[in-house]
């Protein structure tokens, strides 16, 4: 108990006496966590966008011209009866013309020239969430529709697969980048703490000579490291909030992307993870530095 008091007192004293170096260590941790936080925010929002698209997967199945209308209705009813399907709507050639006429200005003369059957009739199919959770499931459902009735199937397969591949790549890059940032930050913070240890080398040497254990000598530095990590995490969150307000939201407004509502700030579990990462960085850097010194002290 008394040892704990001595350790805390020494940690607070050292924090104050080496305020500049401690602040530097906290800034380095904060910068590393900010980079990680920006990456996590981007990834979190991209995942949210993909989730939104996945929930609203839509397949257009275009009939051959020679399929009679009764057969088209029969196929519609068969498709509607399937468990994977949420909703089916039959769009006749005339409906498609009307829709296009409404959507695209001045297209009327072109459509007149092309004739009544220029646009094929189709089934517009909305899938249930459980059937559209992966690109593979969507692709499998679309393939099951292939046959003599349909001329073409359109469900943005290539696009979804490419986007998922891009997300996987982004995750891999994030993991590599995160590891590199972590190692670089650990190296920088360990060297900053090493300066604090170096400034206090006489004291640490004397402590060892009068019988202090390695744990007793190391503990105040771990407390300092934890404080650096916590302050660094707070700085990174403040910085992240600033980046979010100034850049992300304004950029979204400027480009009027409207992809998935307002881009979200990092949610609480991620923020807690950033605090944990800050603590881990600070404490590990302190541990490495002090143990390196103690190994050479008499």
């Amino acid at each position: 108990m008394h040892s704990l008091q001595h350790i805390l007192r020494r940690a607070l004293r050292s924090l104050w006496e080496h305020l500049y170096l401690n602040a530097m260590a906290a800034l380095v941790i904060g910068a590393a966590l900010l980079l990680m936080g920006v990456y996590l925010t981007v990834q979190y929002n991209l995942n949210a966008i993909v989730d939104t698209w996945d929930r609203d997967v839509h397949i257009s199945a275009y009939f051959h011209d020679d399929v009679p209308e009764e057969r088209r209705f029969a196929v519609r009813d068969q498709v509607a009866a399937r468990a994977e399907v949420l909703q089916v709507r039959y769009v006749s050639s005339a409906d498609a013309r009307e829709w296009l006429r409404d959507e695209v200005e001045d297209i009327g003369p072109v459509l007149e020239e092309l004739g009544d059957d220029a646009l094929p009739a189709s089934l517009e199919i909305s899938l249930a969430p459980e059937a559209s959770s992966t690109p593979e499931a969507i692709s499998a459902f679309a393939k099951s529709l292939e046959g003599p009735d349909f001329e073409d199937l359109d469900y943005g397969q290539e696009w979804i697969e490419r986007f998922n591949a891009f997300l996987s790549l982004l995750q891999l890059l994030g993991a590599v980048l995160g590891a590199l940032i972590g190692v670089a930050a650990l190296f920088l913070v360990a060297n900053t703490v090493h300066l604090i240890v170096y400034n206090r080398r006489d004291e640490l040497e004397v402590q060892k000579l009068v019988g202090a254990t390695g744990t007793y000598i190391t503990a105040p530095f771990l407390v300092e490291g934890a404080a650096q990590g916590l302050v660094g995490a707070i700085l990174s969150l403040v910085g992240l909030w600033g980046v979010h307000r100034l850049l992300v939201v304004r950029l979204q407004e400027a480009l009027q992307l409207g992809l998935a509502g307002e881009l979200a700030f990092l949610p609480w579990p991620y923020r807690i993870a950033l605090f944990a990462a800050g603590l881990l960085l600070g404490v590990t850097a302190a541990f490495v530095s002090v143990r390196r010194f103690l190994a050479t002290a008499p």
């Binding site: 001595h6 006496e17 006489d202 004291e203 040497e205 004397v206 402590q207 000579l209 009068v210 019988g211 202090a212 254990t213 007793y216």
Partner: peptide, 19 residues
Amino acid sequence: KLIQSRTVGENVGLALEVI
């Protein structure tokens, strides 16, 4: 081998503090 940033009393008491 005295710690210059500590008082005489703190230097002397160090051997007791560590235990």
